[in-house]
């Protein structure tokens, strides 16, 4: 849980807590990746490179359920909900605005949890390929996962032929989010 709470916390403490939120979330993405069929067949170097490139994007997908577009609130992992206005006052504005916009678009597609999980796997293996040693293996893995996602979605919604293309269009959105926001600064207190 992320201990963002109460009016008695200083801005600095809230920012430290916000920064700390990402640590367990990143570790969960690593564990998630290990469970993707075929991911651990890649070389360790390539696994690391994909995770470094793609984790931010996977987190954007994962966190989108924490954003309430109608209420303009964000729920942190400890269950505390904050209005965007409060968080913006702490300087988190541009990243959160982008996450809200992305969350609205993705949520409107109405994905089931298994579809969302498979989509996150596709996001991870579609990450930037700089530094990848075996491109062919990564491409094979990506193609297999995209085929599986297409199959899952079309079996469940045979009459909706637009959902899968709309979902794939979220991939460049995620790359843009990554390019614009992954250089945002976090602050961790040194005790």
């Amino acid at each position: 849980a992320c201990p963002v709470s109460g009016v008695d916390r200083t801005s600095q403490e809230i920012w430290e807590s916000f920064s700390q939120c990402f640590t367990p979330a990143v570790k969960e993405v690593v564990e998630f990746a290990k469970g993707i069929p075929g991911f651990q067949d890649l070389s360790q170097q390539d696994q690391v490179m994909l995770l470094k490139s793609g984790t931010f994007q996977v987190l954007m997908v994962r966190f989108c359920t924490l954003f309430n577009a109608e209420e303009r609130t964000v729920t942190f992992l400890n269950g505390q909900t904050y209005p965007l206005s409060t968080l913006r006052a702490l300087g988190m504005g541009s990243l959160l605005d982008a996450m809200f916009d992305f969350s609205e678009k993705l949520s409107s597609l109405g994905l089931e949890p298994d579809e969302m999980a498979l989509f996150m796997a596709v996001v991870l293996v579609s990450a930037d390929r700089s530094g990848i040693s075996n491109m062919w293996a990564v491409e094979q893995l990506q193609e297999g996962l995209i085929r599986a996602l297409r199959s899952l979605i079309s079996r469940r919604r045979p009459d909706d032929t637009t959902l899968f293309p709309k979902l794939l269009l979220r991939l460049p959105d995620l790359r843009t989010l990554n390019n614009l926001h992954s250089d945002k600064l976090l602050a961790f207190r040194i005790d």
């Binding site: 600095q12 690593v30 360790q44 690391v48 926001h181 992954s182 250089d183 600064l185 976090l186």
Partner: peptide, 25 residues
């Protein structure tokens, strides 16, 4: 006064991943 280690979100993600793989080797 508190001392902070400041890093980008990208660097933080990278650090966690490197640590995890090193730990599991």
């Amino acid at each position: 006064p508190k001392t902070h280690r400041v890093m980008t979100l990208a660097d933080h993600i990278s650090h966690i991943i490197t640590q995890d793989f090193a730990r599991n080797q």
